[in-house]
Design a protein around this nucleic acid. Sequence first.
DNA 1: CCTTGACTTCGAGCGCGCTCGAAGGCCTAC
DNA 2: GTAGGCCTTCGAGCGCGCTCGAAGTCAAGG
Lengths: 122, 122
Amino acid sequence: MTSLSISDAAAQAGVSAHTLRYYERAGLLDAVAREGSGHRRFGEADLARVEFVSRLRATGMPIRDVRRYVDLVRAGDDTEPERLALLVEHRERVRAHLAEVRRSLERIDAKIDLYRERTRSR
Amino acid sequence: MTSLSISDAAAQAGVSAHTLRYYERAGLLDAVAREGSGHRRFGEADLARVEFVSRLRATGMPIRDVRRYVDLVRAGDDTEPERLALLVEHRERVRAHLAEVRRSLERIDAKIDLYRERTRSR
DNA sequence: CCTTGACTTCGAGCGCGCTCGAAGGCCTAC
DNA sequence: GTAGGCCTTCGAGCGCGCTCGAAGTCAAGG
């Protein structure tokens, strides 16, 4: 069984140690185990959670919704349908957002093309 | 020559009138023409600017970078290469961000599949 | 004339998600 | 034994991008 210090866990997850402590305080992580010194040891389950929370955050899920999700996880197996619904809903929002960004990017592409043409003809 | 009130311009651009005033204050729009009453009239050039600024914002460009862009526009035609560079750079960042969101979404998809399977087998 | 409502300016306030700093504990190496 | 380094808690602070509210002006309709 492996476990990591907060700074190693942070490095692995690509977030800061400050952020990990914040996530724990905010209820996005279960209470992390401690050494005698009080230092956190991130076990595999903690790291998996941190990883998934990071994916939710990277796709723009607000902290409060992430908390709702992990509260469901803690509440036991029969909340799986609810978790599923929550994730599916989130996925739809993300897809819609991606589509909007792509559309906006097309307008920017067009402007880039315009500048390229004008630069070339001078 | 058409022109719109602030509320009509806001509706058309999909932002609030508050936001349009904020954008003008922040230097993202050129000073908008006024009626005798002091009310803004958004002309076609204003609307085109609002539209483009909205696309930059929708793709996550920070206000301060949008301002740098419009400052270049105001500075005249010979800043076009610089504007081009700015937009190209932004486009790369957006593409990288889109790629990361897609990767994160795949992890979420996997979790969704997992829940679906488990739901089915019960 | 009076109300209604859309507008004006200005500065303050807010929600989010960290981010930081102070003050202190503990371990290791020299 | 002391210096260095990594950790702890706690609460405050920050950067961003709006968002709002107060107080006032103006034009149109009844």
